[in-house]
Amino acid sequence: MFKKYTVCLLLLISCASTDKLSTYHDFGEKKGIEKVVDDLFVYLLKDERTKESFQRLNLDKTKEGLSNFICVTLEGPCKYEGQSMKRAHKGQEITERQFYGMVENMQKAMNKNNIPQRAQNKLLGKLAAMHKDIIGN
């Protein structure tokens, strides 16, 4: 009986501390991230809160940059060579409303691609931590 519990406990512990890349895998690795980002931009450009910020950008380059940025954020094997979040948003005076608009569209895109909820929240947690570099900058 005791042994059984020990095994269960060990299993739980090993699950809880799975490899650092589990969220990256949950997203379907680089390909999966690229699909989420593709869908994200469809939503962003339709949303009155966010479209102005993205309209003027070179879409292909921005998508590629964001995919790499997310990949690196999830500790995947990519290289992000774009500007820091602070640099990229400087002078744009992004409001909280726009920031949340981005998050909501991200959630929509992740749902469309059936990314597991826990993985979604893990990424959102990491992105939310950067809000000071993005909002009101």
């Binding site: 959102l124 947690g125 990491k126 939310a128 931590a129």
Partner: peptide, 14 residues
């Protein structure tokens, strides 16, 4: 009545 004194329980992550 309620006032938020400090922090943001959702935005502040990490």
């Amino acid at each position: 009545a309620k006032v938020r004194l400090f922090g943001d329980g959702i935005l502040e992550q990490g």
